[in-house]
Amino acid sequence: MENNIGATDRLTRIAVGLVLAVAGLATLGGLLGFGTTVGAVATLLGVVLVATGLVRMCLLYRLLGIDTSGSR
């Protein structure tokens, strides 16, 4: 599969994903009082953002025809 995530998009996904994952885990650990549902969703979303940033491929972008990599 071809990459469809560019350098800026990649770094943004990884940075935001890490922040969300850490905040989600802190919420699940009881350090932040946002509730377990919000913590679980934030953690999951953070992990997905980091993963798509690392592999430089987003299935949602592919479905929507978006390509930020500049390869097209």
Rank of each mutant, 00 (worst) to 15 (best):
M1V: 07
M1G: 12
M1N: 07
N3M: 03
N3T: 08
N3C: 02
N4V: 04
G6I: 01
G6C: 04
G6N: 01
A7E: 14
T8W: 08
D9A: 15
R10H: 03
L11Q: 10
L11K: 11
R13F: 01
R13D: 04
A15Q: 05
V16N: 04
V16Y: 08
G17W: 09
L18D: 02
V19T: 12
L20P: 01
A21N: 09
V22Q: 06
V22T: 15
V22H: 06
A23T: 15
G24P: 07
L25V: 14
A26D: 11
A26E: 12
A26M: 15
T27M: 02
G29Y: 06
L31S: 13
L32N: 08
L32R: 08
F34I: 02
F34G: 02
F34H: 04
G35C: 06
T36D: 14
T36W: 09
T37P: 00
T37S: 10
V38S: 10
V38T: 13
V38W: 11
G39H: 09
T43N: 10
L44A: 15
L45H: 05
L45T: 13
G46S: 02
G46D: 01
G46V: 03
V48S: 05
V48T: 08
V48K: 08
V50R: 05
G53V: 06
L54H: 03
L54E: 05
V55D: 03
C58K: 12
C58H: 13
C58R: 13
L59P: 02
L59Q: 11
L60G: 03
Y61E: 11
R62F: 12
R62N: 12
L63S: 13
L64R: 13
I66G: 11
D67T: 00
T68R: 08
T68D: 10
S69A: 13
S69P: 04
G70D: 02
G70R: 01
R72A: 11
